[in-house]
């Protein structure tokens, strides 16, 4: 029983990692209706920027804010420079650009910051809590994820800008007709997604250690979490992220063994999506034709 409880708590701690990255995926999806495969690599790059600033003697939270701002600008720049020229091309073209972006950003990170594993500082109390099952950092970063979740929710629900962004993603033509600057909405979406990714990277790095491939596996799980909860629902995606963390731990320990735990998590997700294609908390979109 004790072991069961420990697995659940460890699962929630790991799930918090997935949840924070899932939020970035929701952001880019809400804004562009695409899922950016390079989200993880971009977040890793941002995390290295934060580490560089911290090592240069900046206070942690100042480095945090600066990194978020820099990442926002980089995100906007990527949209303006790389995505804009192919804005009207087919989805496959976009996928090609995303994959190219994965390779470029990942190799660039390794080239600039090298491949050795680096520790990353945490702003929270870094001791183990609850007998080491969860650390002060994991609690703190979960809180940060929830704050970001709140902000994303409020942004899309209650601001005109958020509404305009959603409109630009759902129906660019109509949005343009009512005066929304669709191009800039997309750029803004990329910027915000990159900023949220940077926050996720900074929160994840103290737990998993920083190296260029840090997000490789995490993005996969985060994607699964986002789909499980509903990729158009920030709250659902966060719950989905936590759920994937717990499911993989319990499944790995008690049902299929560690070798198949990723498989089990994905099978469950496919099962859910068969019944509810929009995810557990996703909104079913009906469009009149």
């Amino acid at each position: 029983m004790n072991g069961f409880l420990h697995q659940v708590i460890a699962g929630i701690a790991t799930g918090g990692i997935y949840a924070s990255v899932a939020l970035a995926l929701v952001m880019i999806y809400q804004a562009t209706h695409h899922v950016n495969f390079a989200q993880g690599e971009m977040a890793t790059f941002s995390t290295y920027i934060a580490l560089t600033l911290v090592n240069a003697g900046w206070p942690f939270w100042l480095a945090f804010l600066a990194t978020v701002a820099i990442s926002f600008c980089l995100g906007v720049m990527i949209e303006r420079v790389l995505m804009r020229p192919v804005a009207n091309a087919s989805v496959l073209t976009h996928v090609g650009v995303f994959i190219g972006l994965v390779l470029v950003v990942s190799n660039l990170t390794g080239w600039v910051f090298d491949y050795t594993v680096k520790p990353f500082p945490t702003p929270f109390h870094d001791g183990p809590l609850l007998g080491g099952l969860i650390s002060g950092h994991e609690l703190g970063s979960t809180a940060v994820t929830l704050v970001v979740l709140g902000l994303v929710f409020l942004f899309f629900r209650y601001t005109r800008l958020g509404l305009a962004m959603r409109a630009a993603a759902y129906n660019p033509a109509s949005a343009r007709l009512v005066g929304v600057r669709v191009g800039w909405m997309l750029a803004l979406g990329w910027g915000l997604a990159a900023a949220i990714g940077a926050i996720a990277g900074i929160m994840v790095a103290p737990v998993v250690f920083l190296e260029p491939n840090m997000m490789l596996g995490i993005l996969l799980y985060a994607f699964a979490g986002a789909l499980l909860g509903g990729i158009d629902n920030p709250g659902g995606a966060v719950i989905g992220g936590f759920a994937v963390g717990v499911i993989e731990n319990l499944g790995g320990t008690y049902i299929v063994g560690t070798e198949l735990k990723l498989t089990l998590a994905l099978v469950i997700i496919i099962g859910v999506l068969l019944v509810r294609p929009a995810g557990l908390f996703g909104r079913v979109v009906l469009s009149r034709v």
């Binding site: 072991g3 790991t14 990692i17 737990v207 490789l216 596996g217 790995g252 320990t253 070798e259 990723l262």
Partner: peptide
């Protein structure tokens, strides 16, 4: 024996399992 995959985010679950 307990295994992990290179794609795993953390090995927390595995360590807890071995300890238990």
């Amino acid at each position: 024996t307990v295994s992990y995959e290179v794609t795993d985010a953390t090995i927390d679950s595995q360590v807890v399992q071995l300890h238990g």
